[in-house]
């Protein structure tokens, strides 16, 4: 966890430096200084990118489901972090899964390849429907027919448990 704090502090520092450079760009008239500043800015941004990747990697190592996707909007929402999602070893039967339709204030869950995912705040699941499919179901086949080989889609979702039987 100490690593993460260090990275965060470095990032704040870099942001401050970039802001300073931007102000400098406005103030200076000299072509040479401008080019130099631009170059420095370039370096700072590259550094920021590196820190960002480091942050993602670090949080993956700690095995925290909520933090790795920090730049993805869906996990910034309060719900995905503190709903029953914390425990992704929860087990669902098909009947239990069928209750999470995303209607009546329920969260929206779908199952793919035996894993139950929370799509409540997933952008592609507006009002808990996705291209005519509704939540609360096992969509393994549907996923396979449209998203063959697109495992990354599943990696962006928040797992909440396993589907049993």
């Amino acid at each position: 966890m100490a690593d993460m704090v260090t990275i965060q502090r470095q990032m704040d520092l870099t942001f401050a430096e970039i802001n300073y450079l931007i102000r400098l760009m406005y103030a200076t008239e000299d072509e040479h200084t401008k080019n130099l500043t631009l170059n420095q800015m370039w370096n700072k941004i590259a550094h920021l990118q590196f820190l960002n990747q480091l942050l993602v990697a670090a949080s993956f190592q700690q095995g925290q489901a909520a933090i790795p996707l920090q730049n993805s909007p869906q996990t910034m929402l309060p719900d995905s972090t503190n709903a029953p999602t914390a425990n992704n070893q929860m087990e669902f039967t098909r009947e239990q899964l069928a209750q999470f339709t995303g209607m009546n204030g329920q969260p929206a869950y779908v199952a793919v390849n035996g894993v139950v995912y929370d799509v409540t705040n997933n952008a592609a699941w507006s009002v808990a429907t996705h291209f005519g499919l509704s939540a609360g179901r096992d969509l393994t086949q549907e996923f396979a027919s449209c998203h063959t080989g697109q495992q990354w889609i599943l990696d962006t979702l928040v797992p909440v448990g396993r589907l049993i039987a």
Partner: peptide, 11 residues
């Protein structure tokens, strides 16, 4: 579909 729904998920 649906284009509009008021029967929504919780936030």
């Amino acid at each position: 579909a649906p284009f509009i729904s008021y029967d929504t998920t919780k936030e």
